[in-house]
Design a protein around this nucleic acid. Sequence first.
RNA 1: GCCCUCGUAGCUCAGUGGAUAGAGCAUCCCCCUCCUAAGGGGAGGGUCACACGUUCGAUUCGUGUCGGGGGCACCA
Length: 557
Amino acid sequence: MKAHLTELLTIAAKTIVQNNGSLDLDNLNFTLERPKSAEHGDFATNLALVLAKPLKQNPLAIAMQIIEALPSSDCIAKTEIAGAGFINFFLNAQSQQAVINEILATGPNYGRNNIGKGQKVQVEFVSANPTGPLHVGHGRGAAVGDCLARLLYANGWNVTREFYYNDAGAQIDNLTLSVVARCKGIATDDASFPENGYRGEYINDIATAFLAEETVVADDMEVTASGDINDLESMRTFSVAYLRHEQDLDLKAFQIKFDVFSLESALYTEGKVEQAVEALVKSGHTYEQEGALWLKTTDFGDDKDRVMRKTDGGYTYFVPDVAYHADKWKRGFVRVINEQGADHHSTITRVRAGLQALDMSIPQDWPDYVLHQMVTVMRGGEEVKLSKRAGSYVTLRDLIEEVGCDATRYFLAARRSDSQLVFDIDLARAQTNDNPVYYIQYAHARICSVLNQWNGDKAALNHVDLSSLNNAHETVLLQRLSSYPETVANAATELAPHTLANYLKDLASDLHSYYNEYKFLIDDEAVKLARLSLISATKQVLKNGLDLLGVSAPEKM
RNA sequence: GCCCUCGUAGCUCAGUGGAUAGAGCAUCCCCCUCCUAAGGGGAGGGUCACACGUUCGAUUCGUGUCGGGGGCACCA
């Protein structure tokens, strides 16, 4: 429909321009949008406003000429000029109602498209260090990342979800030393406890399990503790496996599944870090200074050069990161989206610089990044800072256990990721209309309830006379339903899952208003079937949208 | 000091180069003999942080100032 109207407008614009001398039409950036208010029709264009300047004419006069020159169309019931020179289009009722049949015919596929053309995209998210349970910040990354993955899939991309473990750095040493200290019975507030050690209760659990020579399984690995306090290597591998197992449980509770888990340690053992370093040296973008090896990241927009290999021979953290991303490129991902906390934003320039230095024909702005800001958790009007298990932060699992998976996912994905987020536990727990999750789910459940009470042939709803659907509530609902595919497409191209959450809230609101104003199970058979058909389509779109958020769509509440 | 990001109603947040800047909560007033009131309708509440610029038009874009957060190590 949008393409159809755009074509009509382009034809009209050409006619007008010919009447007014020559003008470059290709650079004309007019928009055709859905107006905020239903009073302004189904679509509105600013074409006349855009043409005003080059044609040196009053926008209103141009708008009249455009309407004059507009080819006739069966879909358009009315056009009007409004405001400063907008042209509003009102579709005829039949064109508006047609979306119902489209939704009922395509079902779960309504809203999907093939923009991605089956190309490979990787979404890397969570990527927590195996040094503790996942906290609420990881939860935000998990909710946003998983929703992005679902959105990209719905847009025709071939999606891989990946989790990267930094299991090889100094933080793992800290973890190991912390467990050693606990095995020896050193208290966390004792002076001899490692200064940068981890102090959560879970360290105790690891120490106890290690001494008991337990076995832990984490996705692809199985490790049995030696129980020997002096066996640092066993302590390290056991601790990492133990915490990866914990994080697996956290992810399971959040109903998130990854396709690939990558280990930083594997980049070393497989020689990929060395390969990357050699390639960088060969590229000529490195130099030795003061006993260290430097990468000239300033060649690629960084504000200072960065050390690659320290004087002690170890690599700085971004080197394996570059090797990792070079590997992603080799694996054929034309697009990679890294979802991470905003506190890591300084890595973006370095990773991209490193990839450019490798001279592998990687685009300058590859990979994409989606950064999320901090989450603060509130309960009873006060900030919650501590968790028993982790000590210094609120764990994801605590949150899920307290407010449920659906509410947690919704709240963490429903905000722009670059805004700081306040997670109100009381609100997320509320089983009232205050809570947007229940508000949306309730709309779905209400429809299910009506359809069940009707108890007719639901499949037949795809072939009913819809001509009675023309009151204000129905018009608004039809417009909302027909804009769902654009919402899905935009949320993916903008990498902004929260826009989908907002859409669903609006759709639920439209449904509740309608529900309150009209009855569906009425004697007039034709009107009844038409209305049931409309709410049935609404139910489908609510379900499709909630699926993309990873939130359930209950039939009863 | 430099860089990134945010600043919109009392609170939590949407939104946009254009039409009267929206929603929920909170406050106040209405609506169940009726398909789930986990709902609906209405009222009040705004210098879109501030200033200057670009534009026919700026809350949106640019520059600067102020404020919150983050980043600026041979830490990760």
